[in-house]
Design a protein around this nucleic acid. Structure first.
Length: 298
DNA sequence: TCACAATGAACAA
DNA sequence: TGTTCCTTGTGAC
Protein backbone atom coordinates (compact mmCIF):
# COMPACT_ATOMS: atom_id res chain seq x y z
CA UNK A 1 0.00 0.00 0.00
CA UNK A 2 1.07 3.49 -0.62
CA UNK A 3 4.03 4.24 1.57
CA UNK A 4 7.51 4.63 0.12
CA UNK A 5 8.10 0.94 -0.54
CA UNK A 6 5.04 0.81 -2.80
CA UNK A 7 6.22 3.54 -5.10
CA UNK A 8 9.73 2.15 -5.42
CA UNK A 9 8.14 -1.12 -6.37
CA UNK A 10 6.16 0.53 -9.10
CA UNK A 11 9.36 2.16 -10.38
CA UNK A 12 11.10 -1.21 -10.45
CA UNK A 13 8.19 -2.73 -12.33
CA UNK A 14 8.08 0.08 -14.88
CA UNK A 15 11.81 -0.11 -15.49
CA UNK A 16 11.38 -3.82 -15.96
CA UNK A 17 8.47 -3.84 -18.38
CA UNK A 18 8.03 -0.39 -19.92
CA UNK A 19 11.32 1.51 -20.06
CA UNK A 20 12.77 1.36 -23.55
CA UNK A 21 9.42 0.51 -25.09
CA UNK A 22 6.76 2.61 -26.79
CA UNK A 23 3.75 2.94 -24.53
CA UNK A 24 0.19 3.86 -25.37
CA UNK A 25 -1.32 6.18 -22.77
CA UNK A 26 -5.02 6.81 -22.34
CA UNK A 27 -7.46 8.01 -19.73
CA UNK A 28 -10.52 5.74 -19.82
CA UNK A 29 -12.06 7.83 -17.05
CA UNK A 30 -11.36 11.01 -19.01
CA UNK A 31 -9.86 13.09 -16.27
CA UNK A 32 -6.32 12.87 -17.65
CA UNK A 33 -7.24 12.77 -21.32
CA UNK A 34 -5.13 15.73 -22.41
CA UNK A 35 -2.03 14.55 -20.54
CA UNK A 36 -2.38 11.01 -21.81
CA UNK A 37 -2.62 12.23 -25.39
CA UNK A 38 0.58 14.23 -24.99
CA UNK A 39 2.70 11.22 -24.05
CA UNK A 40 0.91 8.41 -25.86
CA UNK A 41 3.10 6.51 -28.29
CA UNK A 42 6.33 7.82 -26.81
CA UNK A 43 9.09 5.59 -25.46
CA UNK A 44 9.31 5.50 -21.68
CA UNK A 45 12.83 6.69 -20.92
CA UNK A 46 13.02 6.11 -17.19
CA UNK A 47 10.95 5.57 -14.05
CA UNK A 48 12.03 6.37 -10.52
CA UNK A 49 10.64 7.07 -7.09
CA UNK A 50 11.47 9.68 -4.49
CA UNK A 51 9.56 8.92 -1.34
CA UNK A 52 5.90 8.58 -2.26
CA UNK A 53 6.30 10.33 -5.60
CA UNK A 54 6.68 8.42 -8.85
CA UNK A 55 8.39 10.07 -11.80
CA UNK A 56 8.27 8.73 -15.34
CA UNK A 57 10.20 10.39 -18.15
CA UNK A 58 9.33 10.10 -21.84
CA UNK A 59 11.15 10.38 -25.15
CA UNK A 60 9.34 13.64 -25.85
CA UNK A 61 10.96 15.22 -22.79
CA UNK A 62 8.01 15.46 -20.43
CA UNK A 63 7.92 13.91 -16.96
CA UNK A 64 4.83 12.24 -15.55
CA UNK A 65 4.34 12.63 -11.81
CA UNK A 66 2.03 10.29 -9.92
CA UNK A 67 1.18 10.37 -6.22
CA UNK A 68 -1.09 7.58 -4.99
CA UNK A 69 -2.37 9.31 -1.87
CA UNK A 70 -4.20 7.08 0.58
CA UNK A 71 -6.10 4.93 -1.86
CA UNK A 72 -4.43 5.13 -5.21
CA UNK A 73 -3.28 1.91 -6.84
CA UNK A 74 -1.90 0.43 -10.03
CA UNK A 75 -3.50 -2.71 -11.42
CA UNK A 76 -1.16 -4.68 -13.63
CA UNK A 77 -1.81 -7.51 -16.05
CA UNK A 78 -0.12 -9.24 -18.94
CA UNK A 79 3.42 -10.57 -19.13
CA UNK A 80 4.45 -9.83 -15.54
CA UNK A 81 4.22 -11.51 -12.17
CA UNK A 82 2.95 -8.33 -10.54
CA UNK A 83 -0.78 -7.88 -10.12
CA UNK A 84 -1.48 -4.90 -7.94
CA UNK A 85 0.65 -2.23 -6.35
CA UNK A 86 -0.99 0.26 -4.04
CA UNK A 87 -4.07 0.34 -1.86
CA UNK A 88 -5.96 -2.96 -1.52
CA UNK A 89 -8.02 -3.83 -4.57
CA UNK A 90 -8.04 -7.60 -4.15
CA UNK A 91 -11.37 -8.61 -5.62
CA UNK A 92 -11.03 -6.39 -8.61
CA UNK A 93 -7.44 -7.41 -9.26
CA UNK A 94 -8.45 -11.04 -9.60
CA UNK A 95 -11.13 -10.20 -12.12
CA UNK A 96 -8.74 -7.94 -13.98
CA UNK A 97 -6.04 -10.55 -14.35
CA UNK A 98 -8.53 -13.21 -15.38
CA UNK A 99 -9.96 -10.87 -17.98
CA UNK A 100 -6.46 -10.21 -19.29
CA UNK A 101 -5.87 -13.91 -19.82
CA UNK A 102 -8.99 -14.12 -21.97
CA UNK A 103 -8.25 -11.10 -24.09
CA UNK A 104 -5.44 -8.59 -23.94
CA UNK A 105 -5.74 -5.76 -23.16
CA UNK A 106 -8.64 -6.23 -20.76
CA UNK A 107 -11.40 -3.69 -20.32
CA UNK A 108 -10.61 -1.12 -17.62
CA UNK A 109 -12.33 -1.77 -14.29
CA UNK A 110 -13.63 1.17 -12.28
CA UNK A 111 -12.33 4.70 -12.50
CA UNK A 112 -9.09 4.42 -14.45
CA UNK A 113 -7.34 7.78 -14.59
CA UNK A 114 -4.42 6.56 -16.65
CA UNK A 115 -3.79 3.40 -18.63
CA UNK A 116 -0.26 2.57 -19.77
CA UNK A 117 -0.15 -0.15 -22.40
CA UNK A 118 2.75 -1.85 -24.14
CA UNK A 119 2.75 -4.94 -26.35
CA UNK A 120 2.98 -7.12 -23.28
CA UNK A 121 1.83 -5.29 -20.17
CA UNK A 122 -1.03 -3.05 -19.10
CA UNK A 123 -0.99 -0.86 -15.99
CA UNK A 124 -4.16 0.93 -14.88
CA UNK A 125 -3.99 3.77 -12.36
CA UNK A 126 -6.98 4.45 -10.12
CA UNK A 127 -7.53 6.95 -7.33
CA UNK A 128 -4.27 8.93 -7.41
CA UNK A 129 -4.13 12.18 -5.53
CA UNK A 130 -1.84 13.54 -8.25
CA UNK A 131 -1.31 12.61 -11.89
CA UNK A 132 0.22 15.34 -14.00
CA UNK A 133 2.82 16.17 -16.62
CA UNK A 134 5.81 18.29 -15.66
CA UNK A 135 8.81 19.74 -17.43
CA UNK A 136 12.15 18.29 -16.28
CA UNK A 137 12.84 21.52 -14.41
CA UNK A 138 9.53 21.35 -12.59
CA UNK A 139 10.24 17.75 -11.65
CA UNK A 140 13.69 18.70 -10.34
CA UNK A 141 12.25 21.54 -8.30
CA UNK A 142 9.72 19.21 -6.73
CA UNK A 143 12.32 16.57 -5.93
CA UNK A 144 14.48 19.22 -4.28
CA UNK A 145 11.75 19.91 -1.72
CA UNK A 146 11.67 16.30 -0.54
CA UNK A 147 13.57 14.92 2.42
CA UNK A 148 16.12 12.13 2.03
CA UNK A 149 15.03 8.74 0.69
CA UNK A 150 17.27 5.78 1.64
CA UNK A 151 17.05 4.45 -1.91
CA UNK A 152 17.90 7.70 -3.69
CA UNK A 153 21.43 9.11 -3.78
CA UNK A 154 24.39 8.35 -1.56
CA UNK A 155 23.70 6.56 1.76
CA UNK A 156 26.17 8.53 3.88
CA UNK A 157 24.95 11.86 2.58
CA UNK A 158 21.32 10.87 3.11
CA UNK A 159 21.94 9.83 6.66
CA UNK A 160 23.77 13.06 7.47
CA UNK A 161 20.96 15.07 5.95
CA UNK A 162 18.38 13.18 7.98
CA UNK A 163 20.25 13.71 11.24
CA UNK A 164 20.82 17.38 10.49
CA UNK A 165 17.17 18.07 9.73
CA UNK A 166 15.90 16.29 12.82
CA UNK A 167 18.47 17.89 15.10
CA UNK A 168 17.23 21.27 13.91
CA UNK A 169 13.54 20.58 14.54
CA UNK A 170 11.60 21.00 17.75
CA UNK A 171 8.56 19.31 16.17
CA UNK A 172 7.42 16.13 17.92
CA UNK A 173 9.25 13.16 16.42
CA UNK A 174 5.91 11.53 15.53
CA UNK A 175 4.96 14.56 13.45
CA UNK A 176 8.39 15.03 11.88
CA UNK A 177 8.54 11.45 10.61
CA UNK A 178 5.36 12.03 8.59
CA UNK A 179 6.66 15.26 7.07
CA UNK A 180 7.93 14.47 3.57
CA UNK A 181 10.20 17.51 3.63
CA UNK A 182 12.00 15.99 6.62
CA UNK A 183 12.26 12.42 5.38
CA UNK A 184 10.73 10.77 2.34
CA UNK A 185 8.46 7.77 2.17
CA UNK A 186 7.31 7.24 5.76
CA UNK A 187 3.54 6.98 6.20
CA UNK A 188 1.22 6.16 9.05
CA UNK A 189 2.20 2.51 9.37
CA UNK A 190 5.97 2.96 9.23
CA UNK A 191 5.73 5.94 11.59
CA UNK A 192 3.99 4.04 14.37
CA UNK A 193 6.14 0.96 13.92
CA UNK A 194 9.46 2.82 13.78
CA UNK A 195 8.59 4.73 16.95
CA UNK A 196 7.75 1.50 18.73
CA UNK A 197 10.79 -0.36 17.43
CA UNK A 198 12.96 2.35 18.96
CA UNK A 199 10.82 2.76 22.07
CA UNK A 200 10.41 6.46 21.37
CA UNK A 201 7.83 8.79 22.85
CA UNK A 202 6.04 10.23 19.79
CA UNK A 203 5.63 13.61 21.50
CA UNK A 204 9.30 14.01 22.22
CA UNK A 205 10.85 16.84 20.16
CA UNK A 206 12.90 15.57 17.22
CA UNK A 207 15.91 17.57 18.39
CA UNK A 208 15.87 15.88 21.79
CA UNK A 209 17.01 12.59 20.26
CA UNK A 210 20.70 11.86 20.47
CA UNK A 211 22.80 11.61 17.35
CA UNK A 212 23.03 7.88 17.91
CA UNK A 213 19.26 7.53 18.25
CA UNK A 214 18.72 9.43 15.03
CA UNK A 215 21.29 7.38 13.17
CA UNK A 216 19.71 4.17 14.44
CA UNK A 217 16.30 5.43 13.34
CA UNK A 218 17.59 6.18 9.86
CA UNK A 219 19.35 2.83 9.57
CA UNK A 220 16.18 1.05 10.64
CA UNK A 221 14.05 2.98 8.15
CA UNK A 222 16.52 1.93 5.47
CA UNK A 223 16.15 -1.71 6.45
CA UNK A 224 12.34 -1.58 6.58
CA UNK A 225 12.11 0.20 3.25
CA UNK A 226 14.36 -2.29 1.49
CA UNK A 227 12.38 -5.18 2.93
CA UNK A 228 9.13 -3.53 1.88
CA UNK A 229 10.34 -3.02 -1.67
CA UNK A 230 11.49 -6.61 -1.84
CA UNK A 231 8.31 -8.22 -0.54
CA UNK A 232 5.69 -5.59 -1.30
CA UNK A 233 4.44 -5.95 2.26
CA UNK A 234 5.13 -3.91 5.37
CA UNK A 235 6.23 -6.49 7.92
CA UNK A 236 7.56 -4.41 10.78
CA UNK A 237 7.79 -6.98 13.56
CA UNK A 238 11.32 -8.08 14.26
CA UNK A 239 10.39 -10.85 16.69
CA UNK A 240 8.89 -13.31 14.23
CA UNK A 241 10.18 -16.78 13.51
CA UNK A 242 10.56 -17.71 9.83
CA UNK A 243 7.14 -19.36 10.03
CA UNK A 244 5.71 -16.22 11.62
CA UNK A 245 7.18 -14.11 8.86
CA UNK A 246 5.51 -16.26 6.25
CA UNK A 247 2.20 -15.80 8.03
CA UNK A 248 2.77 -12.07 8.20
CA UNK A 249 3.27 -11.89 4.46
CA UNK A 250 -0.20 -13.35 3.97
CA UNK A 251 -2.15 -11.96 6.91
CA UNK A 252 -2.08 -8.37 8.15
CA UNK A 253 -2.80 -9.44 11.73
CA UNK A 254 0.77 -10.73 12.09
CA UNK A 255 2.64 -7.81 10.62
CA UNK A 256 2.79 -5.04 13.19
CA UNK A 257 3.71 -4.30 16.79
CA UNK A 258 1.22 -1.50 17.34
CA UNK A 259 -0.48 -0.38 14.10
CA UNK A 260 -4.25 -0.91 14.34
CA UNK A 261 -3.80 -2.92 17.55
CA UNK A 262 -5.64 -0.54 19.90
CA UNK A 263 -6.59 -2.32 23.12
CA UNK A 264 -4.62 -5.46 22.31
CA UNK A 265 -1.71 -6.36 24.58
CA UNK A 266 1.68 -4.98 23.64
CA UNK A 267 3.75 -7.80 22.19
CA UNK A 268 6.66 -6.76 24.39
CA UNK A 269 5.09 -5.88 27.74
CA UNK A 270 1.37 -6.73 27.64
CA UNK A 271 0.11 -3.19 28.22
CA UNK A 272 -2.92 -2.37 26.04
CA UNK A 273 -1.89 -0.51 22.89
CA UNK A 274 -3.21 3.06 22.83
CA UNK A 275 -4.29 5.34 20.00
CA UNK A 276 -4.26 9.10 19.60
CA UNK A 277 -4.57 11.60 16.78
CA UNK A 278 -1.24 13.03 15.68
CA UNK A 279 -0.56 15.04 12.52
CA UNK A 280 -4.22 14.43 11.55
CA UNK A 281 -3.67 10.67 11.51
CA UNK A 282 -4.21 7.88 13.98
CA UNK A 283 -1.08 7.12 15.95
CA UNK A 284 -0.80 3.76 17.68
CA UNK A 285 1.70 3.27 20.49
CA UNK A 286 2.52 1.41 23.68
CA UNK A 287 2.22 3.81 26.64
CA UNK A 288 4.53 1.64 28.71
CA UNK A 289 7.33 0.71 26.30
CA UNK A 290 7.43 4.15 24.73
CA UNK A 291 6.86 5.99 28.01
CA UNK A 292 4.30 8.06 26.14
CA UNK A 293 1.32 10.15 27.17
CA UNK A 294 -0.56 12.56 24.91
CA UNK A 295 0.08 16.11 26.15
CA UNK A 296 -3.60 17.07 26.49
CA UNK A 297 -4.58 13.86 28.21
CA UNK A 298 -6.72 12.56 25.33
C1' DT B 1 -28.48 2.02 0.73
C1' DC B 2 -25.64 4.70 3.30
C1' DA B 3 -21.92 6.25 6.25
C1' DC B 4 -17.43 5.74 6.99
C1' DA B 5 -12.62 4.51 6.98
C1' DA B 6 -8.10 4.08 4.56
C1' DT B 7 -0.97 3.08 4.11
C1' DG B 8 -1.95 11.31 1.94
C1' DA B 9 -1.51 15.94 1.31
C1' DA B 10 -2.89 20.63 -0.55
C1' DC B 11 -5.26 24.59 0.53
C1' DA B 12 -8.09 28.22 2.94
C1' DA B 13 -8.81 30.93 6.80
C1' DT C 1 -7.53 24.21 12.53
C1' DG C 2 -10.73 22.80 9.30
C1' DT C 3 -12.07 21.46 4.52
C1' DT C 4 -11.56 19.25 0.31
C1' DC C 5 -10.19 15.84 -3.07
C1' DC C 6 -9.36 11.13 -5.03
C1' DT C 7 -11.70 5.58 -5.11
C1' DT C 8 -13.02 1.44 -3.13
C1' DG C 9 -14.47 -1.96 0.37
C1' DT C 10 -16.75 -2.91 4.56
C1' DG C 11 -20.10 -3.04 7.84
C1' DA C 12 -24.09 -1.01 9.90
C1' DC C 13 -28.90 -0.30 8.81
Amino acid sequence: MPEGHTVHRVAVLFRDVFVGHPVEASSPQGRFRDGAELISGQVMSDAWAVGKQLFVSWSGGMVLRVHLGIYGAWSVAGDTSESSIGAPRTRREEGFRRAAEDSFPPEPIGQVRLRLLSDAVVADLRGPTACELLTPDEASDLMATLGPDPLVGKPAKNKARFVEKFQASSTPIGVALMNQKMVSGIGNVYRAELLFRHRLDPWQPAKSLTQEQLEDLWDDWTVLLKQGVKTGVMVTRGDLTPAGRRKALRSSSWRHYVYKRTGSPCLACGTPIAMAEMATRKLYYCPQCQDATPPTGG
